[in-house]
Design a protein around this nucleic acid. Structure first.
Lengths: 345, 345
DNA sequence: GTGAAAGCGCTAACAT
DNA sequence: ATGTTAGCGCTTTCAC
């Protein structure tokens, strides 16, 4: 049979003290005599007292839990972000509840409802790709629950968010390719209604321009960036522009597909065609040659998002008005074999 | 300002009914007139009533939450298992709380304490590699909280667990290599104090024996299975046994390292040396050639573990004695390019 | 078919 | 420095 756990009132009875005194000791309230403190702690330890957080949460109206909604829990990026979130949340004494939207607007709405019902003290969201209606976030706002978007954001000035500077990442990657001596740089781009893909495309364009290289439509191909997409895109690019000497892809997966095609055509990487991708996947350093890629600082994004959320929660506590704050993380270009040309001696 | 949410007693007042009646309606209690039911549901909808789960949990002593402890949240395997867990748990109306032990015994103990404090209704655990003392699980048992181990288990008959048949997976993979005409099959094995690694090693041995191939110590190399380990191991194996014609690795990562070495030595995969790995990582089908690998049925493991846990929870509800039950999942061998030899015409 | 009342374990005024 | 008391929102026994 399960042994009933000791409660505050159990301690109170055994020590002939009031529950409030016990509660005060347990919460490190200052105005308590050392003697009492000691007695209480000792008995607590002896009875293996475990606070009932549910009760405290009910009373205080806060659950000590943060909610997270991600499109999916698998996959390199979100897994690492979640790791960052977990770490900081736990450090700050919060539990974390994770929901997956499966890139589905309906799921996402349900997830938000679940988290609100669970009375979470704050919410972190990376918006599903299919979400077009954002009313569920209004409900969060109405309930005055602090919310921070990360990576995939709803762009309004009132919203707080942590994002990566995709534009800069792309700009750096392309600049690097140019510095390696490439001049006919192709781009495998993602869906342009997705803002991160658009920003990567703009970074590509601007880097070319900044280095006095003319933009050439024949060097650009858009797709959904699967490996197969990269494969097909590369075939097409080679047809349209056989003289290309580098590829910048909006993700690493499509770049792997592209690299296969290049090899099949007898082109050498990086000497005939230099390659740079985006997202620094696990496999990016397992290919041959290893892929140069823009790292997205995943864990840091998670950590930063929680810090921001805790900030908002503190503001909320003090009845300050919630101010939207956007934080942009700078990506890091990881230069590997696929783009490093030996300088012509 | 935040609008206060409607409570049961709010509904009661507005309808001139008692709280108990409202509660009954909301919980689909049978003995309620249809008329009342209708009135209550309508007002509930109108006021957008949301039940306060915290309060219900406190009252009922159950939180409607399942706790999970995993070594880490990133990485292919656990991410997929978690996905499976999430899916079924949500379907069954449970929230999920995820904790990472970071392969650290101390963390794991803290995680369990956290979950017990959060009064989860059931716990799923994959044990950290460094855990030597298992007393924290005794505490769970004492509190009568159902617990299911998955993948990394504490082997006692009272414990419930879901595991993969690593032995069979290895056996199949090696048999497949033999069927491809290989006879000098090397093994890159993992730490033998880890039971899954040991089982894979045994599967390797028994498959050889079953096909009348003598075991040769010079063909076996143990390590921690990092990519570098695979690399180094392969170098050593080629020295010890240059005539080897296949490699079975206890994971895919080490196999990638090994494959690099083979290529450097001018050996062709699969025709000179055929390759099979274990775990079917994301990158396993991105390498060239694509790796044959044993798939671990990750999502299914998660789903199965939750089903088993729900079963135990039901038993618990009925005051039945908790019976330990072990479920073994059969892996699936995915045959890809790295092991498919074109039959000598 | 419905209501009254107790209480889950805790916190926080408001006492003294 | 400590005690008294009310109540968070819900479920549930017992009554009618």
């Amino acid at each position: 049979m399960a042994t009933r756990r000791a409660s505050i009132s159990d301690l109170a009875k055994q020590l002939n003290l009031s529950v409030s005194t016990i509660s005060r000791v347990l919460n490190n309230h200052p105005a308590i005599s050392d003697a009492t403190k000691k007695r209480v702690w000792e008995l607590a330890k002896q009875l293996n007292y475990q606070p009932n957080h549910l009760a405290a949460a009910l009373r205080k109206g806060r659950s000590n839990t943060l909610g997270v909604v991600v499109p999916h829990i698998d996959g390199h990026f979100f897994a690492l972000v979640l790791k960052g979130i977990e770490t900081i949340a736990n450090l700050a004494g919060f539990n974390v509840m994770i929901c997956q939207s499966n890139e589905n607007e309906g799921h996402e709405k349900k997830n938000i409802a679940t988290l609100l019902n669970a009375q979470v003290d704050g919410i972190l969201v990376s918006v599903s790709l299919t979400t077009r209606d954002f009313s569920h976030f209004d409900e969060v706002r109405r309930r005055n629950i602090p919310l921070v978007f990360f990576d995939r954001v709803v762009e309004t000035p009132e919203a707080s968010a942590v994002v990566l500077d995709d534009y800069q990442g792309a700009y750096q990657a392309v600049s690097h390719l140019i510095e390696q001596g490439c001049a006919r740089i192709a781009h495998l781009g993602g869906p342009q209604h997705v803002n991160i893909c658009q920003n990567r495309y703009r970074g590509y364009q601007d880097a070319l321009q900044a280095h006095g290289i003319a933009y050439d439509e024949a060097l650009v191909h858009f797709s959904n960036l699967s490996m197969q997409d990269g494969h097909d895109g590369m075939e097409q690019l080679l047809q349209q522009a056989p003289q290309l000497d580098a590829v910048f892809a909006a993700n690493d997966l499509s770049l792997v597909g592209a690299m296969q095609v290049l090899k099949q055509h007898g082109l050498r990487v990086p000497n005939n065609v230099a390659l740079a991708g985006f997202s620094n996947e696990l496999f990016s350093s397992l290919t041959e040659p290893k892929l140069t890629s823009v790292d997205q600082r995943c864990e840091e994004m998670g950590r930063t998002a929680v810090h921001l959320l805790l900030e908002l929660m503190a503001q909320n506590e003090n009845d300050e008005k919630l101010t939207g704050r956007q934080i942009t993380l700078q990506p890091e270009l990881l230069i590997r074999e696929s783009s490093e040309r030996v300088p012509a001696a």
